[in-house]
Each structure stands twice: as C-alpha cells, then as structure tokens.
Design a protein around this nucleic acid. Sequence first.
DNA 1: AACTCGTCCAACCGCTGGATA
DNA 2: TTATCCAGCGGTTGGACGAGT
Length: 320
Amino acid sequence: MGRSPCCSKDEDLKRGAWTAEEDKILIDYIRVHGHGRWRNLPQKAGLKRCGKSCRLRWLNYLGPDIKRGNISSDEEELIIRLHNLLGNRWSLIAGRLPGRTDNEIKNYWNTNLSKRMKDNKDHNKETTTSSSNPKHPQTEPTPFKIDLPVIRTKATKCSKPLLINNNAQQSTPIPLLLDASAAAAGSEANNNKNIVSSIASNHKELLSKNYNSNDEFLPFFSEDDDKEILSMTDLLIDDYCNLTDADGGLNDLLINSDVSDLCYEVLLSPYSDQPTTIFSDDILNQWTHSYFDDADDHINHDDDSIVDRHCHQSNDKEIE
DNA sequence: AACTCGTCCAACCGCTGGATA
DNA sequence: TTATCCAGCGGTTGGACGAGT
C-alpha cells in the first residue's frame, strides 16, 4: 500500500538531539492536549519536528512514567529471562519492566547483555570441550543459558480495550505446575506437551474456581460495566509458538484441543504495549530471586527450562 | 594537548498491520 | 475493495564522551 512518508526529507524539519526548549514545548503541549495524533502535533505545538520524532521523544524520554537511571540487577535478570523466553520482542519485555522503554532495554541488551551472553557461550564451549571425562560432567555452565524455545507473539494492537480482571490477578500465582516425573522422563516433544497440558489444566482448574464462564471464553472483560466477555478469537495472535515438536503434536494440541484457549492465555499476551500477565508477577519474582539468589542451585539446574525450573520449585513447595 | 578508538544511547529509518474514509 | 492514515515495532545510525596512546 502506498503511503506518503511521515516526514518528507525535503521539509525544513529539525533532526538530531532535542533541546531543553523543544522538550518543554512538547511537554506543555501534551500536558494540555494529551498525546496522539502525532502527525499534526508538531505543527500545532509549534515544533519543527517530525511527528514520529515527537512521539519517540515522548515515549522514550519525556513520558511521566519513564524511569531514568541504571538498570538494576533484578531488572537485568528479568530482561535476560524474558529475552530467553521472547527473543527480541523489546516492547513485550519492556511491558514487564515498569518505567523502562523498549528502546532502553534494546540498547542495554545490545551494549551489555548480548556481549555477556556471547562470552558465556564461548566460555561454555571451552569448558565443554576441555572436559573429556564423562564421569565428571561440566558443573559450571553459564548461569544465563536457558534453552527454552522462544515464544513469539505477534505484536498487534488490540482495538477492543481489554482489562485483565482483577480477580484473576488476585488469584495468582498461576499454578504453573508440571508433572515432574513426566517431564524428567519424557522426550522433548512430550515435555512440551506436558508443559502445555499441565499449565493449561492447572490454570483451567484455577479459573473454574473463579469464573462461571463457558470454557470457550476467557475471563477478559471490557471496560464497560456490562462486563462483556470476549472470546480469544477477538485477539489476533499468530506465529504464536515456536516450540519444537517432533511430531507436530504441540501445534495440534494448541489449535485443536480444548485447552488451546487456555494455552493462549497462559503463554501469550494479547497486549503488546501493556504489562502482561503471561506470567504472574509472583512467578517472575520467583524466577528472578529464587533462581539467581542461589548460585549453586542454578548452576546445577542449568539445563532446566524456565517452566521446568519453576515447576520443580512449585512441586518442592507442595511437597513441603 | 592531540589524536584514535571503543562504548553508549538517543534518535532515525523502514516496515507492518489495524483503522478508517 | 482500495488507498491512506496512524501508531507501533525492531534494526541501525551517528554524535557525544571517556579511555588509552
């Protein structure tokens, strides 16, 4: 589709770093008129800037919720985990880090973490090749290596305002429990199925306690008072899962089985620009703290997937 | 002091896809 | 149905800055 560029290069528009004066003009304008309609905003505000540039400046720098300052170690660990899970889905990752922008996280990853990952990987290779004795397997793998298949969601806008029902959030942590014995014994494909089935069935059970809605629907409600229930068919999610699955059964499971909707809800977020409930805050906190606080533990469990890992913890708690 | 080099990060760019006329 | 608008995404660029020589 042909579309004229947002800002013609011929136009006498300013580029490059923003001045404090420009910032003030933009802030003042948005304070009065709100943001949106970025194309017309510069003209109305009296800025010689491209609308896109204004939007970027606001979203990445001037916005009231932007958190400045260094990335904390907790945030860093969360970024690493989410990147393992989501890949370069910076906006999704940013959605889990309040006050951080996708641009900031992307920059941080590219300048700090990707290098560290590479170093860890190289170090891993060296130690792996040097340890020839099978009776003494490598005991110091990289703490950041997590071979969980990346889940990719399409970053789509959602025209219908969806709110995660507060009751649902209160019901967290979502019981991401996995049959540990099955996970330990099964093939990769079976593991994936077990993971999805287990997540779904546990979540389904949880939801059934809180909702009387039909299983075909998810407990998402509109902002309207009439609490319209929206089916997941209203949500556009494709390329939804990149999990490896030898016999294709996982996709079938996701698409055809009665747990598919719940898998969508548990694994994927309908939002691209909002904090998501892919995993509950409790779970993310557990990942951050439980996993990394105990160095010996995480070293020994390096090959566990995130879900596996969490499931072990959950099962341990249950046993206790 | 002057220069080079590497790093960081704000900003830019091209593209996508939903919304709309 | 089509063309255009618009917001958003992710990759890339380039200027500022500090460290090293």
